[in-house]
Design a protein around this nucleic acid. Structure first.
Length: 270
DNA sequence: ATGGTCGAGTATCGA
């Protein structure tokens, strides 16, 4: 068969997904349910809030997924699940600078695609140390790609960017004026990342506004559709040319114990 | 009214 571990799957269709689960411990039933009906080939998770030793690798293996996780517990934590092989796993950054202790990035090669699961720092308040850290983290991610990947080959950078790329990506841009997630430096940082050779997969297929991936738990924001599009799947040209279908699964934001983020998936033709 | 609710852990902090 042409889809054993690590083998190239050139010619095979592929479904790539991302989901900020806001605690995998709490969300595991929802993730298992979602894997059961969405059946992604690759799923990037963010905010597992688990240490590596607590990551439920065996449960995912039983569902047909190999996994790689990078987390220290309590905060952050990222993972990649794959049923098309998982090789060359790299935890965090490897661009030759100081070690990454934040567990916000993991990369692996899955079915011929270099995949990264990213959880960009929130930034908290504009101008704060956290805000500047967010900007430098995004720049560091760009350098990471410069050193570890090739935009002429299949690359997917998936996750929670904590940046709404344009005004149409928040429920009321006037209400966000001057706050994090929408400032020009944050948007410029995402643009600089994309300038490496990535495009925003959702915008290849959908141009309408009010397509959100995140809704605050408070104030009934989900039910009044006060959301933001801050979760992105960025793909290099070899994948972008073959994107056939993109979906934000709002259904998964409903029901019992939902994450505050919806999962998103991209189908790439074979 | 400028909040609200979650999840970490068990008093608050972070988002």
């Amino acid at each position: 068969m042409a889809c054993m571990h690590g083998e190239s799957r050139v010619g095979a269709a592929m479904r790539i997904a991302t989901w900020n689960v806001n605690s995998l411990k709490v969300r595991m039933p929802r993730v298992e349910e979602w894997l059961g009906y969405a059946r992604p080939d690759i799923l990037c998770l963010q905010e597992t809030k688990l240490a590596d030793a607590a990551f439920p690798a065996l449960a995912f293996e039983a569902l047909g997924y190999q996994t790689a996780h990078h987390g220290r517990g309590q905060w952050n934590g990222v993972a990649i699940l794959s049923r098309v092989g998982i090789d060359e796993v790299v935890d965090g950054f490897c661009e030759g600078l100081e070690a990454d202790t934040d567990t916000r990035l993991i990369s692996a090669t899955c079915g011929g695609v270099r995949v990264s699961s990213v959880y960009v720092p929130n930034g908290r308040a504009v101008g704060s140390d956290h805000y500047h850290y967010k900007l430098s983290w995004l720049e560091r991610l760009r350098r990471h790609l410069d050193h570890t990947a090739d935009p002429a080959s299949p690359v997917a950078v998936c996750g929670d960017f904590n940046v709404a790329p344009e005004d149409r990506d928040v429920w009321d841009h006037r209400r966000f004026a001057g706050s994090t997630h929408v400032t020009q430096p944050e948007r410029d940082a995402v643009e600089h990342l994309k300038a490496w050779g990535l495009v925003d997969a959702l915008r290849l297929r959908h141009q309408e506004d009010r397509l959100f991936t995140y809704w605050d738990y408070r104030a009934g924001d989900f039910h009044t559709h006060r959301g933001m599009r801050i979760d992105l799947i960025l793909v290099s040209k070899p994948l972008a040319d073959k994107v056939e279908f993109v979906l934000i699964d709002r259904f998964a934001r409903k029901g019992k114990l939902p994450s505050d983020h919806a999962p998103m998936l991209v189908d790439v033709a074979g």
